[in-house]
Amino acid sequence: MKRRSSFSRAVFIGTIVFLFMPLFVLVLYSFNESKSGSWTGFSLRWYIKLFSDSPDLWRAFGNSAIIALGSALVATVIGTLGAIGVNWYRFRLRSYLRTVTFLPMILPEIIIGVSLLIFFSGLGFKLGLFTVFVAHVSFNLPFVFLLVLARLEEFDFSIIEAARDLGANDTQTLMKVIVPMTMPGIVSGFLTAVTLSLEDFVITFFVTGPGATTLPLYVYSAIRFGVSPVINALSVVMILGTIALTWSMRNFLKYIAAK
């Protein structure tokens, strides 16, 4: 046992080094004075440029924020209702919905992007923020659906029956019983949707149009032809931002779950 575990330990440590090393290089270079290549001295100039002299970047960030929040909100409402329907009720197309929500998780992103681009263009939609929004709702929806469903599966249908026996109608049962107790699942579905939306490059790349540059698309155009020091600084800010955000959301979720 001992030799085996020391082998797996070595692989694990090597893997962690492998996973973190590129991020450390980014942090290091973000403080480098020169534009690229060798280390010439400590400097904050790229951070200053990032925050005071990168209007396009911040416009892209604004677009990303709007798309992420908007698409997450719509996906959460539609996905939650769908999950509630599938979990507790019988209706036509129930198994269809279950299959369809599974597909986006197994199909490569590029297929979703290409098929939506052809769909939008074929129907004469103008590519732009709206098509990006629609695409993001579409790939977010299944994740919200599955996360909420996972939460719902912990409960018994007798809760619904109890509510009905006590005189609640369908709307009251939904709003006063089902939604509150599913809240942790709904919130984590929403947050997941926001994250996926902020993260997406491939699908957005295909369905975007003029004036609808999101942050990942901006990063792409900046790094396409090599190293860009402002992106080094942006990377560090984004890494720290994600860690801080995820940390607070974890605690927020725990707080909701405990309530």
Partner: peptide
Amino acid sequence: MKRGPGGLYATPAIVWLTVFFIAP
């Protein structure tokens, strides 16, 4: 599992995914 408003709840999800995912 019961009959009830399930179909109604699931309609937006079914329509959205059919139009913007299956149709493409």
